[in-house]
Simulated assay, not measured.
Amino acid sequence: MTVTVDIWTDINCPFCYLGKGRFEAALRGFDRRDDVVVVHHSFELDPTVPADVSGAVEQHIADKYGISAEQVLANERGIAAQAGELGLPYKVGGRDYGSSFDMHRLLHFALSQGKQETLLDALYAGNFAEDAPLFGDRERLVGVAVTAGFDEQAVRGVLDDPEAYAEDVRRDEQQAAALGVSGVPFFVFGGKYGVSGAQPVETFTRALEMASSEQIVTVGADSADTCGPDGCAVPQAD
């Protein structure tokens, strides 16, 4: 039986990056992984941010939560350690944040090309693993897409048309709202099981195995890390 896994994420969200890595670890160990179809959906953490505005993540987090720069870096190091356990690179310090709407439009373009996963991985790498800022810089975004194997003219064509794939992004976000999704990452397995946050690998494995259930239920602890409209959960440094 084919099982579809729908995943709502945002490129700004470090826990989406971790959640994708943990889900994929579970999927690699799932004996029916060839029967699993993964579909990624759009979710903007802050849809009010203008497209040409970006800022330093460290200052943004410090201002939002009223914590010191040292606490921010300690928290970032904690996330980096979690990423390292999955073999994922994570740049501590120097990242930016901003509007992800154009990135989500490009992800729908990539879906139409059958290469959505490729672009999503490239965008995550561009944000969390590479030195150059990703947000608020159209040329940087074009470069990431082209390096991932997409045609430059086609990518620029999407970005030049503000309505290209915009309705697809809005539809994803409306669907998330209808499901009551308030934070990401959020996974729905087989249209029936909901998993919120960057849960442990074992939770994703269980959800894959239980995807034939008849109701959407939340699997895993409610306290798992997510990012929502008010920002990302701030892990407490030891």
Score class of each variant (00 low, 15 high):
Asp230Ile: 01
Tyr97Gln: 05
Gly114Ile: 09
Ala56Asn: 14
Thr4His: 08
Val195Tyr: 13
Leu88Arg: 09
Ala81Glu: 15
Leu111Asp: 09
Val72Asn: 06
Arg171Tyr: 04
Ser42Gly: 12
Ala110Ile: 05
Glu214Phe: 10
His40Gly: 12
Arg138Cys: 14
Val201Lys: 08
Gln236Arg: 11
Tyr124Pro: 08
Glu209Gln: 12
Val234His: 12
Val39Cys: 14
Asp222His: 01
Asp102Leu: 08
Ile79His: 03
Arg28Gly: 12
Leu86His: 02
Thr2Ile: 08
Lys64Leu: 13
Glu209His: 04
Gly190Asp: 00
Ala221Tyr: 00
Tyr65Leu: 13
Thr118Asn: 05
Arg22Phe: 06
Phe128Cys: 09
Gly157Val: 03
Val142Asp: 07
Glu139Trp: 05
Lys91Cys: 06
Phe204Thr: 00
Thr118Leu: 15
Asp31Ala: 14
Gly183Gln: 01
Gln199Pro: 10
Gly157Arg: 00
Phe101Val: 04
Phe189Arg: 02
Arg105Asp: 06
Glu202Thr: 04
Leu119Glu: 07
Asp225Gly: 00
Phe128Ile: 02
Lys20Thr: 09
Arg170Phe: 10
Lys91Asp: 03
Gly197Met: 05
Val195Lys: 07
Glu214Gly: 07
Asp151Lys: 00
Arg22Thr: 04
Gln71Tyr: 03
Ala81Met: 09
Ser42Tyr: 12
Ala145Phe: 00
Ala166Met: 06
Val217Ala: 08
Ala233Ile: 10
Arg22Pro: 04
Asp34Asn: 14
Thr4Glu: 15
Gln153Thr: 10
Ser100Gln: 02
Arg206Leu: 13
Gly66Pro: 11
Pro235Arg: 11
Asp160Lys: 02
Leu119Met: 13
Leu73Ala: 08
Arg156Met: 11
Arg170Pro: 01
Leu107Ala: 05
Gly114Pro: 14
Glu209Cys: 08
Tyr97Gly: 09
Asp151Cys: 10
Leu27Lys: 08
His40Val: 10
Val234Lys: 05
Ile216Asn: 07
Ala56Cys: 12
Cys13Tyr: 03
Leu141Met: 15
Gln153Ser: 13
Glu173Gln: 15
Cys16Lys: 00
Leu18Asn: 05
Cys227Met: 00
Gly191Arg: 01
Leu111Val: 06
His108Arg: 06
Ala122Met: 11
Ala62Trp: 03
Glu117Val: 09
Gly87Tyr: 05
Ala74Cys: 10
Phe101Asn: 00
Ile7Leu: 11
Asp121Met: 08
Asp46Glu: 12
Ala198Arg: 03
Met1Glu: 14
Asp63Gln: 14
Val5Trp: 01
Pro200Gln: 01
Asp121Gly: 14
Val201Thr: 13
Ala62Arg: 06
Asp151Tyr: 03
Ser54Glu: 09
Val57Tyr: 07
Phe128His: 04
Ala221Ile: 00
Met103Asn: 01
Pro89Phe: 15
